[in-house]
Amino acid sequence: MADIVTLKALCEELKLDPREAREKLRAAVGDAKANPELAKARKPRTPWQ
């Protein structure tokens, strides 16, 4: 089984702002034509993993 890596942990490692990362991910999910796999995999009201 693969280890789950949270967005928060990634942002800490890469020294990024988690809020900005979530905003960019939400925008990418909203454009299903450009990112069909991301839009399909995202479940609302769950943490980014």
Rank of each mutant, 00 (worst) to 15 (best):
L14F: 08
K43P: 00
K33I: 03
Q49L: 09
T6S: 13
I4H: 14
K8W: 01
R42C: 02
V5H: 13
P36E: 00
K8D: 13
V29R: 07
R42P: 01
P36S: 00
D17S: 12
P47E: 11
G30Y: 03
I4P: 05
A27K: 13
W48H: 07
P44V: 08
K8P: 00
V5L: 12
E20W: 08
D3H: 11
A28E: 01
A41I: 06
A39T: 08
E12V: 04
T46L: 12
A39F: 03
R26A: 05
T6R: 10
A34F: 06
G30C: 02
A41Y: 13
A9L: 09
E20K: 14
A28L: 04
C11K: 09
A2N: 09
L16M: 10
R26G: 01
P44M: 05
A2I: 03
T6C: 08
L38D: 07
M1C: 04
N35D: 04
A39M: 04
A2W: 07
L14S: 05
C11A: 04
V29A: 02
R26I: 01
A21K: 11
E20Y: 09
P18H: 08
A39D: 00
A39E: 03
D31K: 10
Q49C: 06
N35L: 01
N35Q: 03
L38Q: 13
D17W: 02
A39Q: 02
E37M: 12
W48Y: 14
M1H: 12
W48Q: 09
K40A: 14
A39V: 03
A39R: 09
K15D: 10
C11G: 08
R19Q: 11
R19K: 15
E37C: 10
T6P: 00
E12F: 02
K15P: 00
L14M: 09
A21R: 09
E20L: 06
K33P: 03
L14H: 12
E12I: 01
E20R: 12
N35T: 01
A2F: 08
E23G: 04
L14I: 02
R22H: 08
R45E: 13
K33G: 05
T46I: 00
P44K: 15
W48C: 10
V5K: 12
E13T: 09
E23V: 02
K40W: 06
A9D: 15
D31S: 07
G30R: 01
K8T: 14
A21I: 00
E37D: 15
W48L: 06
K15G: 02
E37R: 15
A2P: 12
A21F: 01
R26Y: 09
L38E: 02
K43C: 03
W48I: 01
D17R: 12
N35E: 04
G30Q: 03
N35F: 15
T46Y: 04
L16H: 10
I4R: 15
K8M: 04
R22Y: 06
V29Y: 04
V5G: 05
A34V: 06
L16A: 07
G30P: 02
E20M: 07
N35M: 01
K43E: 12
L25G: 02
D31I: 01
E12N: 13
P36D: 00
N35G: 03
